Amino acid sequence: MTTEYDSSGNGEAPARYIRLQVDLVMEITDTDELTRAAVEQIDGDEFMPDDERAHARDAVQRDEAEALAYLIDPFGLVNGVSGVELVQASWSSAHAEYDPESDEWDLYEEEMGEE
């Protein structure tokens, strides 16, 4: 029997679960196209109950952030990645004020501060 240990030398087994956090900022360039794609996604979901489908259609037609949330699939992001299985996912989408020149949006600065 072979036991794996982490590379830190502390003798503990490596963590089997990893939380991957990703921040994305997207610009909506065509609201109608985005909404249409979300409605098509909802209409094509054979497992969605009819009452939920009506609520989902209404939500995506009122809010681009909702439409985007219906189109983003975290399972698709890791599908086909060797050696991993997605066990849980949570995501949300919200409108945001975006200024690429603002320090608030300097994602690399956050990484540097954590080290």
Rank of each mutant, 00 (worst) to 15 (best):
77 L>Y: 05
40 E>I: 03
42 I>L: 03
45 D>S: 07
115 E>N: 10
96 A>F: 04
3 T>I: 06
66 E>R: 12
63 D>Y: 01
53 R>Y: 03
110 E>T: 13
66 E>Q: 14
89 A>Q: 08
69 A>I: 04
76 G>T: 01
102 S>E: 07
69 A>F: 01
70 Y>H: 15
41 Q>R: 15
106 D>M: 08
92 S>L: 03
97 E>H: 09
112 M>N: 11
67 A>G: 10
95 H>Q: 12
52 E>Y: 07
115 E>R: 12
71 L>V: 08
28 I>C: 13
27 E>W: 03
113 G>D: 15
86 L>C: 15
45 D>M: 02
27 E>M: 04
55 H>V: 03
22 V>K: 09
17 Y>H: 02
71 L>S: 12
32 D>E: 15
103 D>G: 14
109 E>V: 06
34 L>G: 10
40 E>R: 11
12 E>H: 13
68 L>W: 11
79 N>G: 14
31 T>W: 06
101 E>C: 02
104 E>S: 07
108 Y>R: 13
49 P>W: 04
103 D>Q: 08
73 D>Y: 03
10 N>H: 12
63 D>V: 00
16 R>E: 11
62 R>Q: 14
42 I>Q: 06
103 D>W: 06
72 I>T: 13
11 G>Q: 12
34 L>S: 13
12 E>M: 14
56 A>N: 02
9 G>E: 12
111 E>F: 09
52 E>T: 04
49 P>C: 02
52 E>K: 06
66 E>D: 14
96 A>S: 15
30 D>H: 07
91 W>K: 05
54 A>M: 03
73 D>R: 07
8 S>H: 11
11 G>A: 10
33 E>N: 11
45 D>R: 05
111 E>Y: 11
15 A>W: 00
109 E>R: 15
48 M>Y: 00
105 W>C: 05
52 E>W: 07
53 R>G: 05
72 I>Q: 10
71 L>G: 14
48 M>H: 01
11 G>M: 06
73 D>V: 02
75 F>D: 14
14 P>L: 00
86 L>F: 09
8 S>P: 05
59 A>G: 00
40 E>H: 11
100 P>H: 04
49 P>G: 04
62 R>A: 12
11 G>E: 10
101 E>A: 13
66 E>F: 04
102 S>A: 13
33 E>W: 09
21 Q>M: 08
15 A>Q: 06
46 E>Q: 09
84 V>M: 01
72 I>K: 06
20 L>R: 04
80 G>P: 09
18 I>G: 01
77 L>R: 00
56 A>Y: 01
101 E>V: 03
24 L>T: 14
88 Q>G: 10
22 V>P: 02
66 E>N: 14
8 S>Q: 12
100 P>S: 06
79 N>P: 01
110 E>M: 10
70 Y>L: 09
48 M>I: 00
80 G>R: 04
84 V>C: 01
104 E>K: 08
70 Y>T: 15
21 Q>W: 06
87 V>S: 03
2 T>D: 14
79 N>M: 10
8 S>M: 11
95 H>T: 09
33 E>L: 11
39 V>Q: 08
